[in-house]
Design a protein around this nucleic acid. Structure first.
Lengths: 201, 201
DNA sequence: GAATGTTACGCTGTCCGTAAGAATC
DNA sequence: GATTCTTACGGACAGCGTAACATTC
């Protein structure tokens, strides 16, 4: 099954005329005729009753028409929706908060990549501590904040949504041989992974 | 836009894996990969975030998925509905009544053609006068009757639906020169055509 | 013979599979 | 080095347009 078939089918059904349908879909009349024949063969059903100068839909054609129209409309909607989404993604403003360590270590690369992909998005970055960031987020002064969660792992904070993004290993360097910091195992158990599935860093 | 694109797109969206999606739709992985790329180029939007071993939908992909699924489901429904309709058309019974003149002149050819196209339809033909036919039709003993309408042309008869099918010229043959029967002009005016648009005889 | 749909035929573009490449773990 | 996605390339096939044909008015 091809979308083209349905386009041609609907054109003929609406014009009740092969030649005029061909003009409407900008194709030669024999090409359209053949595609309709292919569709009919594929369905195993005659779709049009070809009386000279009086093309009408058969029962099978009547059954197909509404679905064909809906399918074509959906295809149109699909492309349009994606386009509209892109248009929205291409302009706007994001107020992002982050801790000093994040701002120094991770943000520069991420912001560069983001700006390259969405040059129309205005980025406002605020650098302060995790506590302040959460408060400003709650107050609506920020859209997004990269914070270091309190001991015990991520948890819901009122109306805020928290998504684990990155788990870092903290290593104790010492002059005496020593095991890795025990919190590491706890972190992995809490998060289930080293890097969140949503994280592209 | 091709339906194939949407099929491949949905497969990748559901498996979150190009290789496994390719297996599911029975195509080589590079072929699928290329089609997805074509779809993305056509929409002007990236649909998947390709992180190694962690394919996820982008916002555009999320927007497209439900519509793509609906379109594919509709295509499936369309073919199935036509098939079911055909199955119904292929078996059944029609009780047809007709006047003696119709049974003699027109029916044989029509019945032969009809039976050739719908060999599974059982045809029961009853031959009697127009009055009786209408009565039996009203009583539900017939499904269809070919009658000669009362003078004055076709009209609604209770719950019956009447469709003009054929207008015949009646010629007076005489030893003296004479005009065509005057009713002929009246008939044409009433019916608007010599043969009804629905008539293939 | 004019109008209209179908069949025939060669051409082009699209899609496919195999093979090679690139990137990540 | 194994896995996984992308790029390259040659072949097969579907769809197109022109032309010829068939049919009906």
């Amino acid at each position: 099954m091809q979308l083209q078939y349905l386009t041609y089918f609907v054109a003929v059904a609406q014009t009740r005329h092969f030649t005029r349908a061909a003009e409407r879909v900008n194709v030669s009349q024999p090409a359209l005729s053949k595609q309709i024949a292919t569709l009919e063969r594929e369905l195993g059903a005659t779709l049009f009753s070809r009386a000279r100068g009086n093309i009408t839909l058969t029962a099978a054609g009547e059954a197909l028409l509404p679905l064909a129209q809906r399918i074509l409309a959906d295809v149109d909607t699909a492309t349009r929706e994606v386009q509209e989404l892109l248009a929205q993604l291409r302009r706007g403003r994001v107020r992002l908060g982050a801790t000093p360590s994040v701002c120094t270590g991770l943000l520069p690369t991420v912001l560069r990549d983001f700006h390259r992909e969405y040059p129309g998005i205005q980025l406002v970055v605020q650098e302060t501590g995790s506590g302040d960031l959460v408060r400003e987020l709650s107050a609506g002064a920020l859209d997004l904040a990269l914070v270091i969660p309190a001991q015990g792992g991520p948890a819901e904070e009122g109306a805020l949504v928290i998504t684990p993004v990155l788990v870092e290993e903290l290593i104790v360097a010492s002059s005496r041989p020593q095991r890795r910091h025990q919190n590491h195992a706890a972190h992995r158990a809490a998060c289930g992974c080293r890097t969140s599935p949503d994280c592209r860093w």
